[in-house]
Amino acid sequence: MSDTAENHHDSHPPKYYVKIWGFLLVLLVISLVGPELGIKWLTLITAFGIALVKAGMVCAYFMHMNIEKKYVWYILTATLLLLLVMFTGLAPDIMKPTGQNWENIYHEPTAEEWNAEQDAHGHGDGHAEDAHGDGGH
């Protein structure tokens, strides 16, 4: 058996991959610039929407999943389903702040309270409001 006989035969010229890399870099720039505009829904799209596109492109073109056998898709889909099971199992416990037999003693700090605590402990040199809505970081 040849070392590469059963591997993907890559007939694309290097330019093909450089083009994909260039497109990925354009997406990276958009994901960095998006939050600077300070529009929350736009940040969600430019950060997480573009992350999905970037990941999809790396999987499809660099990992060659676009030409991979169906078994690989079965394996990966099964793991994603396991994650969904975990998510649905954990979500009620984490997201529900009240219950009949327990008391929630956690207090979510406001930006002012959080800043005061940081100042008291000498952490960092910025404040929480710098990070909100206006894209500052």
């Binding site: 954990l90 979510e108 990070a131």
Partner: peptide, 21 residues
């Protein structure tokens, strides 16, 4: 990442912490 998302969606204060990365 799933656990992070669950906590992050529920705790505004995590955004204050993330401001320092």
């Amino acid at each position: 990442i799933t656990c992070y998302l669950l906590f992050r969606l529920h705790h505004e204060a995590w955004g204050y912490e993330a401001a320092y990365t």
